[in-house]
Write a protein that binds this DNA or RNA. Structure first.
Lengths: 196, 196
DNA sequence: GACTTCTGACACGGTGTCGTGTCAGAAGGA
DNA sequence: TCCTTCTGACACGACACCGTGTCAGAAGTC
């Protein structure tokens, strides 16, 4: 464990790892998850496969790391937005959807990875788990629906999955709406079904 | 063009084509879209690649044929169910969702193909187009929302995409609900957002 | 300066898929 | 019977990706 260019071996390894993840996201945006190969990621990162296998077991592993990081960030953004939001359901819904939209809008690379996730076994599993989490968050923390039974879980699932679809379309310029209109409309739907 | 075993050359060709599509669906159910190769489909159909390339240009083409056929069938089922349904919005919603659920439940092979469609460029394009069609159908023919503006299109999109997600989960036994409860609950959501 | 560690490039064998080509034999027609 | 068409199996060359291995030289240490 020696120091190279002023950084320790561990730090260099972590920096390479981070570069690979960034390169992965760039590649996904460019060519899609399907055509994102280990070699393409390495080329973009300016590293060789040697370093890829130093940090990741295979392609699935780096994909899992990347999508999990995305969900963690989105969840954090929503929680942060909810802290300090007014207690009315309508406001909480607006703030929540706004945080989601902004977070996806901030990094289109991740948005594409999310959209294509259902086609990949590992990504789909993570995506489904994340949707469950967001659905629970929506029903309990945002809409304050009680009790949290199977029916409510289903409603949350529908709204969350539908929302991500709509936001994806909006990001791809498939919906001629402004950011605020989009957020407000989705929030209204959330509030409406929350009262069921 | 001679007759073999009593059927014309054209008919034999069409029969092989149909067998290949069936084999494709079986393969998709077994191993997923990603691992559905031309060779695997041929093996299951009991035919060789020779016959595959007789009817299809490549893997994408047979996938497109298969998913389009699915959407045509679902659309037909819904239209048939709506014919003769009572004019109340609630009833029409229930009948529509019921037809969708039953049609997907009838052939799990297609359900899996639909779920994984976003990961494949060709399938995703067809899926998105179909969702648009269903969203328009929902807003105009079922919920009778007017006028059909961008906001309503967005609402339809959200509900349709959310519904397919929920139904997929239900098919995969991820939701402990009976068929009728599932249908009724989704229909209620549709009616609720239709009034916005 | 001698020695060790790290770095990046390249090569390799293995595997799986594609799309085409070949060919012997079966099935049918004249 | 002779001839044509259809059939199914197999071979193949090409290509892409995977995961590992090798190696010379640069970067740092003593």
């Amino acid at each position: 464990m020696r120091s190279y260019r002023g950084v320790s071996a561990d730090d260099r390894r972590l920096e390479r790892r981070a570069r690979l993840v960034e390169a992965l996201l760039d590649t996904v945006l460019d060519v899609g998850v399907l055509d994102t190969t280990v070699e393409a990621v390495c080329a973009r990162a300016g590293l060789t496969k040697r370093y890829f296998y130093e940090s990741f077991g295979d392609r699935d592993e780096i994909l899992a790391v990347a999508i999990d990081a995305m969900f963690v960030d989105v969840l954090e953004a929503i929680r942060a937005a909810l802290t300090g939001a007014s207690p009315t359901v309508a406001d909480r819904a607006t703030v929540t959807v706004g945080a989601l939209v902004d977070e996806l809008d901030r990094d289109r690379r991740r948005a594409r990875m999310y959209v294509e996730a259902p086609g990949h076994p590992v990504l789909r599993a993570r995506r489904d788990a994340a949707i469950d989490t967001f659905a629970d968050l929506l029903m309990s923390d945002v809409l304050q629906a009680s009790p949290p039974d199977d029916r409510h879980r289903m409603v949350g699932l529908l709204v969350v999955a539908g929302t991500t679809e709509v936001v994806s379309r909006w990001l791809a310029d498939g919906l001629p709406l402004g950011r605020d209109d989009l957020v407000e409309e989705i929030a209204r739907i959330g509030v409406a079904v929350g009262g069921l």
